[in-house]
């Protein structure tokens, strides 16, 4: 399967019956992959809940330290980006390549805004000496506070990594959209990346209250 020229009909791989068959199979694969992602974050959240149960005051104090306004801004940014992502898929399905590119571009910019805000939050904490686990040396915290921040850094770090990967994928499909690979007869790649981006968004919607609003 080579990259199709503009306007060319998509050729499905030899082991499928037709393009629809390929689309359905690929979509199932993407959803299964999402299941593994949910389980991975899920295990980490279980750990978070166990320790929150053990040291509720520590987690409250940790949550109070975070700037909920920045967190809320990021939540809005990601929800908005999910909307533009969905619009991107919609436009490619009606063969409106320009609007699709525009919406995917906005999604990508939202990703940059999210990371920018995250950078501000991280550097502020590093400045105060709030590091994970044994490198923690900030003043005025309860003895087990490093544990809360261990979870904070692991959860947001892993999520941030997913945002970066998602942005890379969006950039990749934007190139393919521009080249004319996708059209109303074949948009599997765009939809797959879309599903991934919605998941990244969804994980954040859980992280925001658990980390920022716990106080």
């Amino acid at each position: 399967m080579s990259i199709a020229k503009e306007g060319e009909v998509h050729h499905f791989a030899h082991h499928f019956d037709d393009a629809d068959h390929e689309y359905e199979s690929t979509k199932q694969g993407v959803w299964l992959f999402m299941v593994t992602e949910v389980l991975m974050f899920g295990a980490l959240l279980v750990g978070y809940l166990i320790f929150k149960g053990l040291y509720p005051e520590v987690f409250e104090q940790g949550g109070d330290t975070l700037n909920w306004k920045l967190g809320a801004t990021n939540t809005v940014v990601l929800i908005f980006s999910s909307l533009t992502m969905a619009l991107g898929i919609y436009y490619i399905r009606i063969d409106d390549r320009k609007k699709a590119l525009l919406n995917l571009g906005i999604t990508l910019i939202c990703g940059f805004i999210f990371l920018g805000i995250k950078y501000i939050e991280y550097s502020h904490k590093f400045h105060l000496g709030i590091f994970p686990g044994k490198y923690f040396h900030a003043e005025g915290f309860m003895p087990d506070a490093p544990l809360y921040f261990s979870f904070y850094y692991m959860l947001t770090g892993l999520h941030g990594l997913h945002v970066v990967i998602g942005m890379g994928l969006i950039a990749w499909i934007m190139i393919r959209v521009a080249r004319g690979t996708y059209s109303s007869s074949y948009w599997t790649g765009v939809e797959g990346v879309g599903i991934f981006w919605h998941l990244v968004d969804l994980v954040w919607i859980y992280l925001f209250p658990l980390l920022y609003l716990v106080g």
Partner: peptide, 21 residues
Amino acid sequence: TPVLGITLLLLVAERVLGVGI
């Protein structure tokens, strides 16, 4: 397997970043 994945990642983070979970 994803649960093993995150467990091993936490173990690596434990060594590299000093995370104390």
